[in-house]
Write a protein that binds this DNA or RNA. Structure first.
Length: 119
RNA sequence: CCACCACUCCAGACAGUCGCGCGGAUGCGGGCAACCGCAAAAGUGAGGAAAGUCCGGGCUCCGCAGAGCAGGAUAACAGAUAACGUCUGCCGAAGGUGACUUCAGGGCCAGUGCAACAGAGAGAUACCGCCGCGUUUUUCGCGGUAAGGGUGGAAAGGCGAGGUAAGAGCUCACCGGCGUGCAGGAGACUGCACGGCCAUGUAAACCCUAUCCGGAGCAACACCCACCGAAGCGUUUUAAGCUUGCUCGGCAGCUUCACGGGUGGCAAAGAGGCGUGCGGCGACGUACGUCCAAGAUAGAUGACUGUCCAAUACAGAACCCGGCUUACAGAAGUGAUGGGCAA
RNA sequence: GCGGGUGUAGUUCAAUGGUAGAAUUCCAGCCUUCCAAGCUGGCCGUGCGGGUCCGAUUCCCGUCACCCGCU
């Protein structure tokens, strides 16, 4: 961590979500789908998380969102800047263990070449 | 000890590292302005159901809710409450050996409707049968009858006696229902006496009776900065629009399309919790003392490690309260009931 | 968050409180050299749990699922 703070910037605007779905490259695994697009801001990478109401009730959706956010935070120090990332949770993510979600997210981020020199 | 009943309470704890929302001492920067951005110390951060949105309020606006009709809700009685469809007590009914539990529990003796099929007949009857008379070999015809058979969820109030050709509330006793009177009770109701009458079921069928209800909802609404668009109707009687579904009455604006941002509302404090005293069978009221810090706006609680533990179920605040209903792993406690054993 | 609506056969729809029906699908048979079409027959049920009623798709309560409108 070497003392430096890495802040998580949320992606909130609807049109950015729509653009990520339409124009972004997608990478899938069993628990989630990753949409990646180059953003306008060079210094920040924005993260949006989507958990559909079909996945469960409020408690379930919140838990999935927290797991995804925490997993994202785990890779944050090695992440490239200037991207838009949208993570869509799939049904198996509801019952998945956190370590599984973390490993799959790492696999997808590597596949999308978003990680700088992996330590 | 076993079984069962009622009620109360908890909803994993502690430590460490990283992370999130609110908060902003303080510092830096931006904007014409409202204000915004960045860093950040202290402090602080979901529930008993936060849920379903089924009721009742607060609050806000429309508006002046003014009249009538329609419509909706509730339903023994008395109380509690801001209010309620909630709660308490009590009456009645049903269940349980019992502690106790459950009940949409007003009115078909106001009126109307419906009761399929079966059955002779569903508030109106005679199929079989019984009895009498005529005929007479049986049979058949006429009359009487509702005790018996059969059908049905329900069949002329039930049962016994008298009575009769056979029978029948035809008469009588008891019971049930209704009415009147008297007594008790705050009342529902209970008890007793007398009396006409027998009156099927269904009001979660229409309906009647009593009581209550203006409409919309924080995406309400107010303010600030920017923008000040288009079309249609109306301001003239009508028509159209809004006001409640309709009529009268009222309003001067209304409808459709297009369309930025921020602040307040909104959060530490109220019909608040706990304790004690007093009043009340109780719901609850009252006096005193004491306690209280979520406030997001794509929406904050997670990850890892260790210890303890019987174990973590149902589940995430979105203007705020009082209830109801539904979901739920378990843990703890209090009181009562029935049975067994021992003293 | 608020307001409103709908659940009937695999599908699209009916049904005054009185045996849940039609079309289509599917299956079997007939017809045909075979297939299609046609003809005949059959299978398939009221979202779920209670209540009222003699009897509930229908009436009442609860619950679940789905859909629509309002930023």
């Amino acid at each position: 961590m070497n003392g430096k703070k890495y802040k998580l910037y949320p992606l909130k605007l609807n049109h950015l979500f729509t653009r990520a779905y339409r124009k972004g490259k997608s990478y899938g695994s069993s628990t989630m789908v990753l949409y990646v697009l180059s953003g306008r801001d060079r210094d920040r990478t924005l993260l949006g998380i989507t958990v559909s109401k079909k996945r469960g009730k409020a408690v379930v959706r919140n838990r999935v969102k927290r797991h995804l956010r925490e997993a994202y935070r785990y890779y944050l120090p090695n992440l490239k800047n200037g991207k838009l990332i949208v993570i869509v949770a799939k049904q198996p993510a509801v019952d998945a263990d956190f370590t599984v979600i973390r490993d799959e997210l790492g696999y997808l981020l590597g596949k999308a070449t978003l990680l700088e020199d992996s330590k």
